[in-house]
Design a protein around this nucleic acid. Sequence first.
DNA 1: CTCGTACTACGAGATTCAACGTACCATTGC
DNA 2: GCAATGGTACGTTGAATCTCGTAGTACGAG
Lengths: 116, 116
Amino acid sequence: MSTRARRAPAKKALPHPDLREVPVSLVLRALGEPLRLGIVRSLAQSEHPMNCSSFGLSVSKSTSTYHFKVLRESGVISQFEEGTSRYSELRDTELEQRFPGLLTAILAATEDPAGG
Amino acid sequence: MSTRARRAPAKKALPHPDLREVPVSLVLRALGEPLRLGIVRSLAQSEHPMNCSSFGLSVSKSTSTYHFKVLRESGVISQFEEGTSRYSELRDTELEQRFPGLLTAILAATEDPAGG
DNA sequence: CTCGTACTACGAGATTCAACGTACCATTGC
DNA sequence: GCAATGGTACGTTGAATCTCGTAGTACGAG
């Protein structure tokens, strides 16, 4: 394709579920995993799209991909590709509309009260 | 024991976790199972202790016991024995204190938006 | 004491989940 | 073109989860 853009780096979108069709149990399962909940916490704090590799997860690359996929398919995050990287961001506005107060309540809870 | 009560039927308590030591991910996992979420919904609607067999679950008794155990061990419900029955009730007040707004948000969400 | 009810504990099977390594693809930069 | 970077897809392995049947316990009624 000779007409491809050189300076606007594509921002290819990935398939995401319609939140109206996502049952709450799916979201709860997705967030019930400590590693995934940690990812969501990071995203909520940054409030900006984050590169997948900038989370500093202590798991392998393929495991990381797996968890991001679970989060995306449960409607919690959205991802888009830009250049060689894939960025993730929280679908917080949509989630708030579909499940009012849910994400706020989860993020407000301290994960491990004993550990801090 | 000749001094045992005849009219007050015992109400034996079962071991329950201290909610301060329960991580939010454990609660989310417990509620991420449709059958268990259904149990919690029933309990929230009745607002009174419910006999385990009055839920009309379409699984075997042992499966039922298993799910009630998961809910109890994650701090979502409390159970006590009375006579030959075991009653369950939501620990809603404690949950609200430990995870403000969480249970409310989850119960407010329609489980399957497509189905109803 | 015997029977029925209500429920549990244990063990087993099937399914799902989490983690990984390897191979692979797309983009960037030389 | 070639190598490096960032990430995916596939297959696998071990652990956890869900389901059940069976056996058993505790209580109440007769």
